[in-house]
C-alpha cells in the first residue's frame, strides 16, 4: 500500500488585511482563514498518486489553532482518507525550526512513503518546511516540482531554477513539494463535502508526540520578532491620462529620477 501524507496549512485569506498581534505573531483572529491555496496543489497530487496506485491511503496533517481543522475538512472534501490535527496552546508563536520539529515528530508517528507539501504557505511563505522535514527525517527532498511521477519506489520530478530546468530522482521515502504548475486542484463535489464530514480526524497534543512544550512556541523561538511596524501606505504618485503625450510624460519622469 502507498501511504501518502500531505501537509496542509490553514492561513489567513491573503486578500484580507492581515497584520500582527502585539506579541509579534500573525494575528490569525483578525482575518478569515482558509486552506492555503498552494496546499490544494499538494492535495491534488496526493489524490492522483493514490488513484494511480490503487491501493493507497491519503492522510492530511496540519498544525495550528482549533479552527485549523478547516484546512483538513476542505482537503478531505477533495478526497483522501483521514486527517491529523496537531493542536496545543504551547505551539503558539513557533518558528520554522520548532514547527518542523513537531511536524517531523508527527510524521514519524504516522507511516508514510511520500510526504507531499505545497511550495510555500500563503502567509509566512518561507517555503522551507519541506526541506526542514527532509533534514529532520533523514530522507531526500524533491522540492518545487512542476511535475511528479512515481514508478515502483522511484519518484521523479521536474523543476525549474533561475538558470535551468532539472530532473531529480530519489527513492522513497521522500519529501516532495509541488508548485502551482503541477496541475489544477479539483473542486470538492457536494458528495465529497458531505463525505468529508464523516472522515476520521484525530487531534494530537505535544504530549502525544513527546515534544516538550517549553521547547517550542514563542518563548523558545530561535529567531524572535523585535518589532513589526506597519509601513505607511505607499503614497501613489501623479497619474496622467494619455492624450497623445503619455510616453513623453513617462520619459520626463524617469529622466528627472535619473533613470534615463
Amino acid at each position: 500500500m502507498l501511504r501518502v501524507v500531505t501537509l496542509v496549512k490553514y492561513t489567513p485569506d491573503p486578500t484580507g488585511d492581515v497584520g500582527f498581534a502585539d506579541d509579534g505573531t500573525v494575528d490569525r483572529a483578525a482575518v478569515d482563514g482558509q486552506l492555503s491555496e498552494l496546499d490544494e496543489y499538494a492535495a491534488e497530487q496526493a489524490l492522483r498518486l493514490a488513484e494511480e496506485a490503487g491501493d493507497a491511503e491519503v492522510t492530511y496533517l496540519t498544525m495550528g489553532p482549533s479552527d485549523a481543522v478547516g484546512a483538513l475538512r476542505k482537503a478531505l472534501a477533495m478526497g483522501g482518507d483521514r486527517g491529523v490535527h496537531i493542536l496545543d496552546d504551547a505551539l503558539h508563536g513557533s518558528d520554522v525550526i520548532a514547527t518542523s520539529r513537531v511536524l517531523a515528530a508527527a510524521l514519524s508517528k504516522l507511516d508514510y512513503d511520500i510526504v507531499l507539501c505545497g511550495m510555500a504557505s500563503t502567509d509566512a511563505g518561507t517555503g522551507v518546511i519541506p526541506a526542514l522535514l527532509a533534514e529532520r527525517l533523514g530522507i531526500p527532498q524533491l522540492t518545487y516540482a512542476q511535475s511528479l511521477a512515481l514508478k515502483d519506489r522511484t519518484v521523479r520530478i521536474e523543476r525549474e531554477t533561475d538558470v535551468a530546468v532539472e530532473t531529480v530522482e530519489a527513492e522513497l521515502p521522500a519529501v516532495v513539494s509541488v508548485t502551482d504548475r503541477s496541475g489544477d486542484a479539483r473542486y470538492p463535489s457536494f458528495k465529497g463535502i458531505m463525505a468529508a464530514k464523516k472522515k476520521p480526524v484525530e487531534t494530537w497534543s505535544l504530549a502525544d508526540l513527546e515534544v516538550p512544550g517549553d521547547e517550542v512556541g514563542l518563548g523558545a523561538a530561535l529567531s524572535a520578532t523585535v518589532s513589526a511596524t506597519k509601513r505607511p501606505p505607499r503614497q501613489a504618485g501623479p497619474k496622467v491620462v494619455d492624450e497623445g503625450e503619455g510616453g513623453v510624460a513617462l520619459a520626463d519622469f524617469l529622466a528627472a529620477q535619473k533613470f534615463i
Binding site: 501613489a236 497619474k239 491620462v241 503619455g246 513623453v248 524617469l254
Partner: peptide
C-alpha cells in the same frame, strides 16, 4: 496604488512613444 508615476492609457501607444 503603488505607482510613483502612472500613465492611464493604451500601452500599445504609450510604450512605443516612450
Amino acid at each position: 496604488e503603488l505607482s510613483d508615476f502612472g500613465v492611464v492609457g493604451d500601452l500599445h501607444a504609450v510604450l512605443p512613444q516612450f
